[in-house]
């Protein structure tokens, strides 16, 4: 599944300072759909190069990291259960860095 992932607010520093990543993510074995929970663990394994605790806490993003799926607050689409589709754009922005 082709997705565009964007990191901002300092989170890009955790993945080689690259802000936009065009990626291909396969749904987990035995599942037809890809949900945010799967994507987060994929990102944790494949994109985050340092200090993963700045991005994840438990199986979700750490509080203070905003998540937008196609410009929409993921709190409106079910957070970890949000189903992703081909060509979705997912944005992660940290509010934890200075203002």
């Amino acid at each position: 599944m082709q997705l565009t992932l964007e990191f901002g607010g300092g989170l890009e520093l955790l993945c080689d300072s690259v802000k936009v990543h065009n990626v291909d993510v396969v749904p987990p074995k035995g599942s037809e759909k890809l949900i945010m929970k799967d994507l987060l663990s994929w990102v944790g394994t494949n994109l985050i190069k340092e200090r993963p605790e700045m991005f994840m806490k438990g199986d979700s993003v750490r509080p203070g990291v905003l998540v937008l799926v196609n410009d929409c607050d993921w709190e409106l689409s079910g957070q970890l259960d949000t189903t992703l589709e081909e060509k979705d754009v997912v944005v992660f922005i940290s509010t934890l860095h200075g203002g």
Partner: peptide, 13 residues
């Protein structure tokens, strides 16, 4: 910072 794509800066000291 996001929707209006304002120019802002963020990094760590």
């Amino acid at each position: 910072a996001y929707f209006k794509r304002l120019d802002y800066f963020s990094t760590e000291c």
